[in-house]
Structure formats: structure tokens, C-alpha cells
């Protein structure tokens, strides 16, 4: 089964590496939440911003929807690297992505 690696830098600056199956049908938020990180309050509907992360390295990921863009614009700490990771489905191109979890 094909796997990819996901790097996480948590709110305390600690690094974690997760491995996940490519065919899980999950999104990034679900994978990160299943590892015990607190996020996903709205179940992945771009409604709560609990999964707000900064993604620094330019990965080939899907574009933001209007709903995601609008939610991010509402936050005071969002910037050009901001994503709601519940809006990013797991795919091969994400291998090695670095997610910086944002403190609310």
C-alpha cells in the first residue's frame, strides 16, 4: 500500500512525522486529528478554522474554495501560507508537506 509522510510542527514548535495511506479517502485534517491533535470541530466543513495551518513549502495542493478563502479572511492571524487543512484531500503530491499548526 502506498504511503506518504506528513511533517507537523505543533504550537510548541515540536516536530512530528506521520505516515498515512494514500487510499484512505481522508483529508489532511482527519489524518492529523486521528493522531491526537485537537482539530476538526466542524467535522471538516470550513466552518470553524480549528484546522488552520501554515503550509510553507509550495506543494502541489488543491486551490482554496470560496468558503475556505472567506473563512481564512475572517481570521486575524491568516496569511498567504494559511490553509484549512480539512479542505485538502490526501494525495501523492502531499508527500513531505510541512504543516505548522496555528494557535487560535
Amino acid at each position: 500500500m502506498e504511503k506518504i509522510l506528513i511533517n507537523i510542527i505543533d504550537q510548541n514548535g515540536e516536530k512530528h512525522v506521520l505516515e498515512t495511506n494514500l487510499d484512505s479517502g481522508l483529508n489532511l485534517m482527519e489524518v492529523v486529528r486521528d493522531e491526537g491533535f485537537q482539530m476538526g470541530n466542524c467535522g471538516g466543513m470550513a466552518l470553524c478554522a480549528s484546522c488552520h495551518c501554515y503550509i510553507q513549502n509550495s506543494h502541489d495542493i488543491n486551490k482554496k474554495s470560496k468558503a475556505e478563502e472567506d473563512m481564512l479572511n475572517q481570521l486575524h492571524n491568516s496569511n498567504l501560507e494559511s490553509r484549512l487543512i480539512c479542505q485538502i484531500p490526501i494525495k501523492k503530491e502531499l508527500n513531505g508537506v510541512v504543516l505548522i499548526l496555528v494557535d487560535d
Binding site: 470541530n41 470553524c48 478554522a49 480549528s50 475572517q74 481570521l75 486575524h76 487560535d104
Partner: peptide, 9 residues
């Protein structure tokens, strides 16, 4: 009045 949403803690 800054209204940037609420988050549960």
C-alpha cells in the same frame, strides 16, 4: 468591537 469569531477552549 473585534469580531473574529469564537473558538471553544
Amino acid at each position: 468591537v473585534p469580531l473574529f469569531g469564537l473558538t471553544p477552549k
